[in-house]
Design a binder for these strands. Structure first.
Length: 460
RNA sequence: GGCCGGGUAGCAAAGUGGUAAUGCUCGGGACUGCAAAUCCCGCAUACGCCGGUUCGAUUCCGGCCCCGGCCUCCA
C-alpha cells in the first residue's frame, strides 16, 4: 500500500508523493539549546525517527535535516542568569540532547545545522526579500511585510485580519503592519551579533529554518515536521519567507505535526514548570520504555504522560524481551517486515496498531509448538520492531537494567545465592529456598525456575 | 471569538456503515514444591449528547457539551 500522511496544509490524510522518488528530503525543527530536553521535546524526535526509518525503507535515499537553534533570546537570558558563557551553554546542552535522544533509540539526522553557522545564508535571504519588495528596514530591524504574501495564513488557517484582531501583544511602532514579523534585529554591544548591511544584529527565529532548509534540501522539499504548536507563527512564517524568497515556488509538500504531550491534562512546558526532563526519566526507566510510551499513542493525538503509563510501557517491553529470551536459541527465519506492521506504519504512522501486532507476534512466538513456527514468529517480532526502533538491546542487557540509586547486588553474588537455592531445593529445603528467593526479591532481583534452570532479572 | 486535536470497557489505546483489535487489570484452568514466566478459557452488556441520512451508524452529515492546544517564546 502507498504511504499515507496527514498533511496539515490540506488537513487531510493524503498519499505521499515525493518530489524526487530517488531522494526524499525531510526537515524537522530541532531544539533551542539552553536547557535539558523534556519528555515533550522527545515526542517529535521519536515520531519523526519512525518516519525517517520508514522512508529509508521505502525510498533509496533520504536526507533528514534537524537544526539546532543556538542563537536565541532564551539562551541569552540563561547566560545572563547563570553567568555561563553562551557558547558553553549551547555546546553542553547540544551534547546532552544528543545523549538523551540516543538513549531513546533515535537515529541521528543526516545533517544537523546550527543557526550560528549559517548567518551569511540568512543575510543573503533577507537581501533577496528586500530586493523583491517583501521586506523593509525600520529602526535597525528588518521586517517581513506580510501583506505582500497573498496566501499568508494558509497553513494555520487564519487570515491576516484575524491575526491582528486576536493579537494579544503590543505592536511594535516601527511595524508597517501589525502582522509583520522580524527577520533581523539589532544587537546591543553585550549581545551576540553579526555585521550585516543593516548593522550589527542577529536573525529572527523563523529565518534560520528557511535558510538552512534551502541550503541542504533545496527551495522545495518533501516533508517538514515539528510540534503542533509550531504551526503558528513559526511554520507559517517559514512558508512566507521561503516562498517569497524563491519566486513563489512551493516550499514544502507535506507538513506533519505531532500532537501535544500533557501531564494531568495540562500542557507540559518549561514556562509552566510541570515538565520532566528526559534525563530524569532515564534514571527511572530504560530509554526504550520511554520510546515505547511515546509511540503507544498515535502521533497526532494528545498523549497524557503519567508514571503509570511509563510503568506499563516498561511492562510491555518486559513481555517482549521475555519472549525473546525464551527463544534465544531460535534462529529467526525470513527478514521481512510483517505486512501488518508495514501497513499500519504506512497508514499515517499508526504506531499503536503496529505495536499491537508486535504483541500478537510475541504471543505467536510464546505459543509456537514446532521449530519452524518459532523461527518464523521470532523473525516477525524482530523485524516488526525494527522500523519502530525497538528491541535495540538484548534480553540480557534489558533484564539487567535497574533504576538509578536502587539497592544493588552484584551478579556473582546473585549467581552464588541462586546456586545455594538450587542446592536447597534439591534437598527439598523449600523454606530455605523461598527465603533466598525473597531475599533477592527485596534487592530487586526476581527469580524464575524453568526447565533449563533458574533465571533472574532485575525489576524496577 | 477564530483555528486545530481529542472524548471507545477499570486503565491505556486502535479501528470499522452491519453490534468493536491489542496490552495491562480481574476471574478460572494447565504448568510449578510454592511462585514467577508462559499457555488455554473467560470477563465486562465500552463507542460524550441530540438530531439527520441509511434496511442498518460508534463509523457519514448537522448541532451541542466537555477536555486540551494555538492565536505571545514553546515540541
Amino acid at each position: 500500500m502507498p504511504l499515507l500522511l496527514h498533511n496539515s496544509l490540506t488537513r487531510r490524510k493524503e498519499r505521499f508523493e515525493p518530489i524526487d522518488p530517488a531522494h526524499v528530503r525531510m526537515y524537522v525543527c530541532g531544539p533551542t539549546v539552553y536547557d535539558y530536553a523534556h519528555i515533550g521535546n522527545a515526542r517529535p524526535v521519536a515520531v519523526f525517527d519512525v518516519l525517517y526509518r520508514l522512508l529509508k525503507r521505502l525510498y533509496p535515499k533520504v536526507t533528514y535535516v534537524r537544526n539546532i537553534t543556538d542563537v536565541d533570546d532564551k539562551i541569552m537570558a540563561a547566560a545572563k542568569e547563570s553567568g555561563e558563557e553562551i557558547d558553553s551553554i549551547t555546546v553542553r546542552t547540544a551534547r546532552a540532547y544528543h545523549e538523551d535522544m540516543a538513549a531513546l533509540g533515535a537515529l541521528p539526522p543526516d545533517i544537523e545545522p546550527r543557526a550560528t553557522q549559517h548567518i551569511p545564508q540568512m543575510i543573503g535571504m533577507i537581501g533577496t526579500l528586500i530586493a523583491g519588495g517583501h521586506a523593509y528596514v525600520a529602526e535597525g530591524h528588518v521586517l517581513f511585510a506580510v501583506a505582500t504574501k497573498s496566501d499568508y495564513g494558509k497553513l494555520s488557517g487564519r487570515s491576516r485580519d484575524e491575526l491582528i484582531a486576536g493579537a494579544r501583544v503590543e505592536v511594535a511602532p516601527y511595524k508597517k503592519d501589525p502582522a509583520d514579523f522580524v527577520l533581523w534585529k539589532p544587537s546591543a554591544p553585550d549581545q551576540p551579533g553579526w555585521d550585516s548591511p543593516w548593522g550589527r544584529g542577529r536573525p529572527g527565529w523563523h529565518l534560520e529554518c528557511s535558510a538552512m532548509s534551502a541550503e541542504y534540501l533545496g527551495e522545495s522539499f518533501d516533508i517538514h515536521g515539528g510540534g503542533h504548536d509550531l504551526i503558528f507563527p513559526h511554520h507559517e512564517n517559514e512558508i512566507a519567507q521561503s516562498e517569497c524568497a524563491h519566486g513563489g515556488k512551493r516550499f514544502v509538500g507535506t507538513w506533519v505535526h505531532n500532537g501535544f504531550l500533557v501531564v494531568n491534562g495540562e500542557k507540559m512546558s518549561k514556562s509552566l514548570g510541570n515538565f520532566f526532563t528526559v534525563r530524569d526519566l532515564l534514571a527511572r526507566a530504560p530509554g526504550e520504555a520511554i520510546r515505547l510510551l511515546l509511540l503507544k499513542t498515535h502521533y497526532r493525538a494528545p498523549l497524557d504522560f503519567s508514571d503509570e503509563g511509563l510503568r506499563q510501557a516498561k511492562g510491555e517491553l518486559d513481555r517482549f524481551y521475555t519472549a525473546l529470551r525464551a527463544s534465544a536459541d531460535i534462529e529467526p527465519e525470513g527478514g521481512e517486515t510483517p505486512t501488518g506492521v508495514m501497513d499500519a506504519l504506512e497508514d499515517d504512522l499508526n504506531t499503536p496498531l503496529a505495536i499491537a501486532y508486535l504483541h500478537e507476534m510475541a504471543g505467536d512466538l510464546n505459543s509456537a509448538t514446532d521449530a519452524a513456527m518459532k523461527r518464523r514468529s521470532k523473525a516477525n517480532l524482530l523485524y516488526g520492531a525494527r522500523l519502530l526502533g525497538l528491541f535495540a538491546t538484548t534480553p540480557g542487557e534489558w533484564f539487567r537494567w535497574q533504576p538509578a540509586g536502587a539497592a544493588t547486588v552484584g551478579e556473582t553474588e546473585i549467581e552464588s545465592r541462586i546456586a545455594a537455592r538450587v542446592a536447597a531445593r534439591k534437598a527439598k529445603d523449600f523454606k530455605e529456598a523461598d527465603r533466598i528467593r525473597d531475599e533477592l526479591k527485596a534487592m530487586g532481583v526476581m527469580l524464575e525456575d524453568g526447565p533449563k534452570g533458574t533465571i533472574w532479572k532485575r525489576v524496577g
